[in-house]
């Protein structure tokens, strides 16, 4: 409990830093005694606070979504970016933008959720028909499938001159987050709360279908609940800030190493560290080439793939 409070404090510090890093000069000094019309205060309210909240909400919920997927697929290396979920969500955004450009963002996000759900279900279906289900093959299949889906998306976007819109969904970037344009992420926060509520069910499902049935739960229902949560979280993140890969992979793995997978216990940690990792990567992206920004999706991609490789190699050693 104490450690968890400490981690919260760390997030608090990172969040505070996130509020005061940027091109416009916003410092605590300028804010104290500033009148309501001051520029610093306006930047803070319209941009910095929304951005920081968006980072925290997206980081938390993506990490938890990855955790749920790892339980349900019973594989440590599955997360929305290694199972075709993210790519399907952005394909969904593209398709709905083509067919119903005037649809409200909530409607688009729901359509993207449906795509994400279908893509993830397809991934699980493919897995079931692969006889050799080695631990390392599973994410490779997912990554290949994701690549195929994003190739389709790129082709469509190219034909209809929507490449720029597609780029916004595929590269996670918090720099354009403004008040009024990120609130959808509160939905994924709500979904994270539901995941916590159902944590024991997901842990039981992680034990496998037979254990789940023996304990009186319906495996299919737990699977469906988990997939809906994962798809909606992914779609709302893709719709508002774009793909943020690897958070859902790295954070749950690190937490599992330290304290195991019992979700009731581990989920708060996964959520907090997920927020922390994305905050840190976004800050790094803002500082490395200041005053220019590197999108968080790119930073996450570099940091994430390095850590992913480290995890893979570690696993290989364990497997012999």
């Amino acid at each position: 409990m104490k450690a968890l409070a400490g981690a919260c404090l760390l997030i608090f510090v990172l969040a505070a830093a996130s509020l005061f890093v940027g091109v416009s000069d916003v410092t605590p000094g300028k804010l104290i005694g500033a009148d309501a019309g001051s520029r610093a205060l306006q930047v803070l309210l319209a941009s910095r606070i929304p951005r920081t909240l968006a980072i925290i909400l997206a980081g938390m919920s993506m990490a938890v979504a990855g955790f749920i997927m790892q339980m349900l697929a019973r594989n440590r290396f599955v997360e929305p970016s290694t199972a075709g979920t993210m790519e399907s969500a952005s394909l969904g955004m593209l398709v709905v933008t083509l067919l119903a450009p005037q649809a409200p963002v909530m409607g688009k996000m729901l359509a993207a959720s449906a795509f994400a759900l279908a893509g993830t279900a397809l991934f699980l279906r493919i897995l079931r028909s692969i006889p050799l289900r080695s631990v390392l093959i599973v994410p490779l299949v997912g990554i290949m499938m994701g690549n195929v889906i994003s190739a389709v998306a790129t082709f469509i976007a190219y034909r209809f001159d929507l490449l720029q819109a597609l780029a916004a969904w595929t590269t996670g970037d918090f720099s354009s987050v403004l008040r009024g344009r990120y609130e959808l992420l509160w939905l994924s926060f709500l979904l994270t709360g539901i995941a916590y509520f159902a944590a024991d069910r997901f842990t039981v499902a992680g034990l496998g279908e037979d254990f789940t049935t023996n304990l009186g739960l319906h495996y299919r229902r737990v699977l469906r609940l988990g997939l809906v949560i994962v798809s909606m979280v992914t779609a709302s993140v893709v719709a508002t800030v774009g793909m943020v890969p690897f958070v859902g992979l790295i954070v749950p793995n690190i937490v599992a190493m330290a304290m195991g997978d019992n979700m009731r216990h581990a989920l708060p940690w996964v959520a907090i560290l997920g927020a922390g990792l994305v905050l840190a990567c976004d800050l790094a992206g803002r500082l490395i080439r200041f005053p220019y920004e590197i999108p968080v999706g790119t930073v996450m991609g570099v940091v994430g793939s390095a850590l992913f490789l480290a995890l893979l190699l570690r696993k290989r050693r364990q497997l012999g």
């Binding site: 339980m71 019973r74 594989n75 440590r76 842990t203 992680g206 034990l207 254990f211 195991g260 019992n262």
Partner: peptide, 9 residues
């Protein structure tokens, strides 16, 4: 046969 991938105590 029970193979468990979840890390539990």
């Amino acid at each position: 046969d029970n193979s468990i991938s979840v890390r539990l105590t």
